[in-house]
Amino acid sequence: MEDFLLRVVPGLAEQWQGSTPEELAQIERIAGRPLPPFYRWFLTRMGQSMGPLTYPRLDFSARRVLTCYTEELVEPHPRFLLIGYNSDDMMPLHVFYDLDLAARADARVTKRHARGGALHDQFETFREMLAYRALSSFRIDRMPQRCRTIVTGDEPDILSHLDPVMDRLGFTRPVPTGPHCGLYERHDAAMVCTKIPRDKPEAVMVFRLGGSASGTLRRIQGAIATESALRLDVREWAPPLA
């Protein structure tokens, strides 16, 4: 993960700043249990500043997390740990770990209001959330041509059908993921695909694909459609095709 972020995000190594050991220990005391190993890594690297990877309205800094608990905006909970503060005045859904749903040395990421309420699950792991943003923002969004596509199958495990096709097309998978998130890249294209992690997952995913030209993207889509049992529905081209 560290090698991937340093390669994809320009200037990250010069701008990220880790939290102090005391801040990390304080957050762990609030959680009331050992922190997920990935979150410990995140705090040691980016607990003060995420540099270019910073989200527009989300503050993942250790200082902000501790301030929210100190000022009693959020109450300690044995299951949910605040990791990201949303500064949106209209709809401040903050980012929490669901520590009871551990996965691959990490845990599920969800959003909810500070005092509770409905959960809006986001990613199976915080690692996938950060890797998705990095590949989307610093590769796909900078490609000359992009598209958004809905892909459906006859069973929930979409990636088991998608992975072999992407492998044959020369894509690598830079960060290991679970069944709810896929990350792929090669020199002239990159793709991310996700679906909401649920106990009963749906047989559908959304993918964003970027490449050097529309023809490149069409060939990738064609290979997926013809070499697998998946069905593609292209919803948007950016910029729009003539």
Rank of each mutant, 00 (worst) to 15 (best):
S61A: 05
R7M: 03
R108L: 12
A102Y: 02
A13M: 06
R219P: 00
P56T: 07
R108Y: 08
V9D: 11
M191Q: 10
R115G: 14
R115C: 02
T226Q: 13
E236A: 12
M205H: 05
R198E: 14
R115S: 13
D154G: 13
F42N: 04
I158V: 13
R108H: 09
R64F: 01
P37C: 05
G47H: 00
Q145T: 15
P239S: 08
G11K: 12
D163C: 04
Q48N: 06
R208K: 14
A238G: 02
S212F: 02
R7W: 01
H161W: 08
R168F: 10
A238R: 11
I83S: 00
R146W: 02
W237P: 00
D88Y: 06
G211P: 02
R173A: 11
R63Q: 15
R133M: 05
G211Y: 10
R142E: 12
L101K: 14
G116N: 08
L53I: 10
S19W: 01
R219D: 12
E23H: 14
P37M: 00
V8E: 15
P21G: 05
V9F: 12
P36L: 11
R231S: 11
T125H: 06
C193R: 06
F60I: 03
D141C: 03
T44N: 07
P176L: 05
A131E: 01
Y85F: 13
R127S: 10
G153V: 07
M1G: 06
E71C: 04
M91D: 12
Y69S: 07
L169K: 08
H94K: 02
P78R: 12
L101C: 05
T226E: 13
L230W: 08
F207W: 15
Y85N: 06
A103H: 12
P10V: 02
A134Y: 09
G222T: 04
A134P: 08
E128F: 05
H180N: 14
T226K: 13
D121T: 10
C193L: 13
Q48F: 01
T125W: 06
R79I: 09
M91A: 10
